[in-house]
Amino acid sequence: MKTDAMEIEVLSYRGIDVLKVYGDIDLYSSPGLRKNLISIICKKPGTLLVDLSNVSYIDSSGIATFVEGLKNMMCYGGRLKFIGLPDRIREIFSFSRLDKVFEIYDGIDQAI
């Protein structure tokens, strides 16, 4: 799916859903990200991996979208895990202390 400057790919790796995001996550692309994220979470996967290695920018709407996703998954004991965070995005997660709340891993094999 392509939404403005962002693209999303949903893959399966060893039976685990992987949401791979490309481009910028901003005020205009976040609604598309939310739609994809929520539609996966509705199926109540035990683990969902979000690959941000190809994301060049994320704003507060993108972070809020992931917060909402995690909140929904926590309701049924699901786990939302992030992989491949570029330094700049890791910095923003760290500033907002979300690095302590989100599960963050370097790569896909460490996350599963």
Binding site: L27, Y28, S30, P31, R34, S60, S61, I63, A64, T65, V67, E68, S96
Partner: peptide, 17 residues
């Protein structure tokens, strides 16, 4: 006024700001 963000996303953003 300016975005198509869902109310739930906006509420989280407001609390962040």
């Amino acid at each position: 006024e300016h975005t198509r963000l869902e109310g739930s996303t906006i509420q989280i953003m407001v609390r962040m700001k």
